[in-house]
Amino acid sequence: MANTESRLEQENRKLREMDERYKAAYQKETLEHPKFLKERVRNYDEALARVAASPIQEDKAGVRALQLERDQLARKAYPNLFIRLFKKLVDVLSAGNRVAKAQQATADNASSVHGSMEKVGLGDHFNKVQQQMKQGNGEFSLPVSYQVSEREKMELHLNFKRDEIGNCHFENYKATLFSEDGKIKPVQHTFDIQNSDFDTGKAYNLLSGRAVHNGAGSWQQLDFNDKDGAGNLRMKNFLTGYGFDLEKVLVELPLKETEHKTIFQKFMNGEKVEATLLINNKETSYVLVADPQKKEVGVYNQLGRKFTQDELKGKQSETKSTANVQQLIPKVKHIQDQRKGKSVKF
Rank of each mutant, 00 (worst) to 15 (best):
Q57E: 08
Q57T: 02
Q57Y: 01
E58K: 01
D59Q: 14
D59T: 11
D59C: 12
K60T: 06
A61K: 07
A61S: 03
A61W: 00
A61C: 06
G62W: 05
V63H: 07
R64Y: 01
R64S: 11
L66Y: 07
L66N: 10
L66Q: 13
L66K: 12
Q67P: 00
Q67E: 10
Q67S: 08
E69V: 01
E69C: 01
E69P: 02
R70F: 07
D71M: 14
D71T: 11
Q72C: 00
Q72M: 14
Q72F: 12
Q72D: 14
L73D: 02
A74T: 06
A74N: 11
K76H: 07
A77N: 03
A77E: 05
A77R: 05
Y78Q: 07
Y78I: 09
N80S: 15
L81Q: 14
L81G: 00
L81I: 15
L81N: 11
L81T: 15
L81V: 14
L81P: 15
F82A: 14
I83A: 13
R84F: 12
L85P: 01
L85M: 06
L85S: 04
L85T: 06
L85E: 09
K87R: 15
K88T: 09
K88I: 05
K88Y: 11
K88G: 00
L89A: 14
L89K: 14
V90C: 09
D91K: 13
D91N: 10
D91S: 15
V92Q: 05
V92L: 03
V92N: 06
A95G: 05
A95M: 07
G96F: 11
R98T: 04
R98Y: 06
V99P: 01
V99M: 01
V99G: 02
V99W: 02
K101Q: 12
K101Y: 03
K101E: 12
K101V: 10
K101I: 00
A102C: 08
A102H: 04
A102Q: 04
Q103A: 08
Q103C: 03
Q103P: 02
Q104V: 03
Q104C: 00
Q104Y: 01
A105E: 08
A105W: 04
A105N: 11
T106N: 06
T106W: 03
A107R: 05
A107Q: 06
A107C: 03
A107V: 03
D108C: 06
N109D: 15
N109Q: 10
A110E: 02
S111L: 13
S111V: 00
S111R: 11
S111G: 13
S112R: 15
S112Y: 13
S112V: 00
S112A: 13
V113W: 12
H114G: 04
H114E: 11
G115V: 00
G115S: 04
G115Y: 03
G115A: 07
G115D: 06
S116Q: 09
S116E: 12
S116A: 13
S116Y: 01
M117Q: 07
E118V: 07
E118Q: 07
E118T: 04
K119D: 08
K119G: 00
K119H: 09
K119Y: 08
V120M: 07
V120E: 04
G121T: 11
G121R: 01
L122W: 08
L122Q: 07
G123A: 13
G123F: 00
D124N: 08
H125R: 07
H125T: 02
H125I: 01
H125E: 08
F126I: 04
